[in-house]
Design a protein around this nucleic acid. Structure first.
Lengths: 132, 132
DNA sequence: CTTTTTGCAAACCCTTTGCAAGACA
DNA sequence: TGTCTTGCAAAGGGTTTGCAAAAAG
């Protein structure tokens, strides 16, 4: 748990809030625009601890680097197959899905992660958009 | 596309069939038990091409290395939170889930991946099982 | 002044690649 | 023989770590 307030931590948290589903590297880039002296290690450490403490949510996605989300409530994500952008998707009933799933005999299912693949609005319009 | 039959390729494909949802490293380990001279690069190359050609399925999972699956039909997976083992899960209606999902306005959803987290039978029994 | 936090650089893990040597057909 | 496939070793990328220096309280 982070007990002292520092310039670096403020910049990192500010970036997470300003960006939409940033990866650690996205955050680093944003922080560097304001202060290039902040180190990569610090960004990873601050993000890891913020996720640990529940201040932000770490999104562990299939096929992408972990992203960070300031929305703490559970929801699904769509990853754009073209540019990698991540969009929030409201999905009504994963509990039903989990209940319906034929579990592994003898095993136990605790959580259900739903992830969609598709095209984000920009890429769907055919815009020459690359990477968030 | 692989046109020649080699000792190495045979060992790799044999291992993929013998193992359950192996990662490339799992395959490498199995192959090395029979022939330690097979290189890491070859295992990755053979698996990548087998997945490319549709001979096996590459499973891109959240929070795990890619795994390879000889079952070509689509199904969901459960990742054991304790040992990392992967189990097949039959899940009835992801198409309904996809239809129900409130898509990103202007975007397009193409595919839906469902992944469960829980305990595999061994870990659920409390056995001292670590890593597949 | 004590303890936390940082920056650096190196280590790490997993995967991919360039290239010359080797093996298949 | 010709060219596909391999092994090696190095390069990647993304993330983590050890440690001494800097900064917060």
């Amino acid at each position: 748990m982070r007990t002292r307030k520092t310039h670096q931590t403020e910049l990192v948290m500010q970036a997470v809030h300003a960006l939409d589903h940033p990866t650690a590297s996205n955050v680093l880039d944003a922080v560097h625009e304001l202060d290039p002296s902040v180190s990569r290690a610090t960004v990873f450490r601050v993000l890891a601890e913020a996720a640990e403490s529940g201040e932000v949510q770490r999104l562990v996605l299939a096929g992408s680097s972990d992203c960070f989300d300031i929305t703490l409530c559970k929801h699904a994500h769509m990853v754009c197959s073209r540019c990698g952008a991540i969009s929030d998707v409201d999905v009504p009933d994963t509990s039903a899905l989990q209940r319906d799933a034929v579990g592994v005999k003898g095993g136990r299912i605790d959580a259900c992660h739903v992830q969609f693949f598709g095209l984000c609005p920009e890429c769907n319009r055919g815009e020459p958009h690359q990477n968030q």
